[in-house]
Design a binder for these strands. Sequence first.
DNA 1: CTGGTAAGTTATAGGTCAATCACTAACCTA
DNA 2: TAGGTTAGTGATTGACCTATAACTTACCAG
Lengths: 184, 184
Amino acid sequence: MPMPAAGTSTKSDERRPAIMAAAIDCFAQKGFYGTTTHEIANRVGISQPYLYRLYPNKEALFAAAVDHVSVVMTETLVAHSSASGGAGPEPEAALDAARDAYAALVADRTILRFLMHANCAAGEPLVGQAVRRCYAKQVDTVRQLLGDDDAVRHWFGAGMLDNVVAVLGLADIDEPWAHVLAAR
Amino acid sequence: MPMPAAGTSTKSDERRPAIMAAAIDCFAQKGFYGTTTHEIANRVGISQPYLYRLYPNKEALFAAAVDHVSVVMTETLVAHSSASGGAGPEPEAALDAARDAYAALVADRTILRFLMHANCAAGEPLVGQAVRRCYAKQVDTVRQLLGDDDAVRHWFGAGMLDNVVAVLGLADIDEPWAHVLAAR
DNA sequence: CTGGTAAGTTATAGGTCAATCACTAACCTA
DNA sequence: TAGGTTAGTGATTGACCTATAACTTACCAG
């Protein structure tokens, strides 16, 4: 029975991350409804029907992208916080490093913008479930970093506002109201 | 020359508010790309082509809805804050009343949800402009209420988080992470 | 009643998009 | 090299969506 040896990733599995990256890029621009499966396939360099071999439909593809983002965020955080001390005797330094890592992670506008669109598409069942899974993970992580629940809410609220500021390009607008929202 | 007397609103002008209400409802559910002009027309009870007599295209209709929301928010606020004292000798009471009015206003989930989708559609030129106009107005208003710029940012951030909590239905989820985000 | 305007509709053009089908090429194992 | 599996594509389908065109009805002034 010709099949890949157990534990070996098939070629299509290797291609999934590339599809995820392209999907996140595209969805971050125009959201779930505004992005066509053709655009995504084009960016990866595959045909549009081949997407449907790897994902049953557009909604599942989007939900997979949300899960992917969730994993990437957590992995990056763990990597950074363990790399700087690795359960060493300096808990404060590790925490600072972790916070920096998180800040650097969300500095990638694409990811946050994609998650903003994901919030809007949460009406689709599979998407809503994935988004809730993502928040569950992120809230737990951030709470371990910050401790205080109020601080966690403030963190997420500030992140969302930050995102809107970026989408609207308020940094380039020299008016009082824009300065208020864009202030660091 | 048969035409309505000057200053008289035509019947189509009277219908515009109803169209705005329907558009806001629909767009709040599935956003700019996910909502069809047919859905909106159906909800108002007019034919879909008639929408195009009143608005040149879908983007202009959406932008008009954003402007409409901006006006409604400001009007409501002014009405409430002037009704309770009307530049009377109690500035604190008026401020509290205004804050309550604002809270009641955003308690209408539809408006905030619509604005969330508007943020996501800000890539469309007309929509982006309308959204910036809306924020300009709201920031000025809220700043007059709160005074401190940090507090204004906190206000908007908290509002956006609040919105996501509502969209995801976190109030109905009995898990720690959900409680953290949904806490009042 | 007559001519002109506004209100509103049906029908449809023209295009796009998600999803499926049928097919070909490459690969792997025995 | 034969047989089965995976990778991948071109063509197409059926639905749907924005926008326009052409037409009908109600209204209103002189």
